[in-house]
Design a protein around this nucleic acid. Structure first.
Lengths: 231, 231
DNA sequence: TGATGATTGAATCATGCGTTTGACATCGGC
DNA sequence: GCCGATGTCAAACGCATGATTCAATCATCA
């Protein structure tokens, strides 16, 4: 595994800080080496000297964010399963374990809150879209681990169905991270100006209901006039 | 409004076809004018001759896809509301009116199914991220119209809450469109190989449950061991 | 102090980008 | 036959990109 420790000072650190700020703000493709070195007040050659290439710096920035988030996800999941040892884990706690680390890790970051979430969202969103393979390798075991726990919490939901529902959940989370500002704009203020904590809680309730849909503890037919409508 | 009619043949048509195929496959930023003209077997200058600029071509491609989809969305919505005149419209039908046009319009397209959905997803996903303003202008009234209908169907959900839930819904839909292939890969085959029709129906059920969460017709507390957990 | 290796800086490289140019071909109408 | 309108084409323009070169500078330790 590559060294992820970050020097306290010096231009290497300045470059990393500038890079993550710009990547978060403008997107991975839209930021040039010159943008980064200019913000970091270093020479253009510094990026290639310290990191080898722009791509290597990009991968480092992404890994630096994903690794602690994914570690906290797994730690929370294990702690929850220990707490409910053997018994069915409540769905909301599972989803919380998956999304809450985004909010806790943001405070350990030098990035502004807004930029941190945008960066996290971009990393997820551009998954499998020209992203370094190491990022996907980093995420896959986490997804698999959570999928297994979700399956245990929802024994009546077929695996095929569950995989798709988790997919929808991930999409909602990504969109929430990357396009918070768009909601505010398109909704003409109707969305309020909630904290991310509040929005995450909203999201957990939404996603839990979606995951649980059709489950025995749900009532089978009850949702108003839909008799003529088949899904 | 710009002319959206497409010539039957000639290099203008060839350019449009090549452009939408490449944009869908690789993303809007990753495709160069030279890529397009090479696939279309025309000269590099042709794009600027016929469309004025790369950006104008990009806007045309996007509008050509969004306009009919959004028209069908509104038409379906009005037909539904006529059908249930005055009465509460079932949630599933509203969501269906929003997502189903993606599946019906794909057949009128020359793009392969996979590319069409990717293109649609990209247009949504990169919303407000350097996208031409015309696309947002095209989408905003649709969102507002649907939001009003959702509000009527869910009178007990506060407007602020509803706006966010619709946001989560949109995110799930986008992710579903753009990253279908990723699901298949990450889930090691557990997701099956369903048609988009089937996946959309899955999504409608998921999203409806999420939107409806906490609604009176839902039962208030019933979902297993979650007494100690607050949201 | 002087030698050594790490770091910086200005200049430059090759490449790819969107766009423009101007010569050339093709065609319908007078 | 000629004209202007409409396309097409190779070539080039100006610019930005990631990367590299190589001399100058710095820090560290013998």
């Amino acid at each position: 595994m590559r060294d992820l420790t970050i020097p306290e000072s010096g231009s290497k650190r300045k470059l990393l800080d500038a890079a993550e700020q710009l990547f978060a703000d403008k997107g991975f493709e839209a930021v040039s080496v010159r943008d980064i070195t200019q913000l970091a007040k270093t020479n253009v050659a510094a990026v290639n000297y310290h990191f080898g290439s722009r791509d290597a710096l990009l991968g480092l920035v992404m890994m630096r964010y994903m690794v602690p988030i994914n570690e906290e996800r797994l730690a929370r999941l294990e702690s929850i399963e220990r707490k409910w040892s053997g018994k069915a884990v409540p769905l909301e706690e599972l989803i919380d374990a998956f999304v809450r680390p985004l909010a806790t890790q943001v405070r350990k970051s030098d990035l502004s809150e807004r930029l941190f979430y945008k960066l996290a969202g971009r990393i997820f969103a551009e998954q499998g879209d020209g992203m370094p393979a190491q990022i996907e390798d980093q995420l896959r075991p986490v997804i698999e681990r959570f999928t297994r726990s979700f399956a245990k919490a929802l024994p009546t939901v077929a695996m095929e169905e569950l995989v798709w529902r988790i997919h929808f959940l991930a999409g909602g989370m990504i969109h929430l991270l990357t396009h918070q500002d768009l909601v505010l704009r398109l909704s003409s203020g109707a969305s309020g100006a909630p904290t991310m904590e509040a929005t995450l809680s909203r999201f957990i309730r939404f996603a839990a209901a979606g995951l649980r849909e059709g489950t025995p503890s749900d009532e089978p037919v009850k949702k108003g006039p839909q008799a003529t409508f088949n899904f």
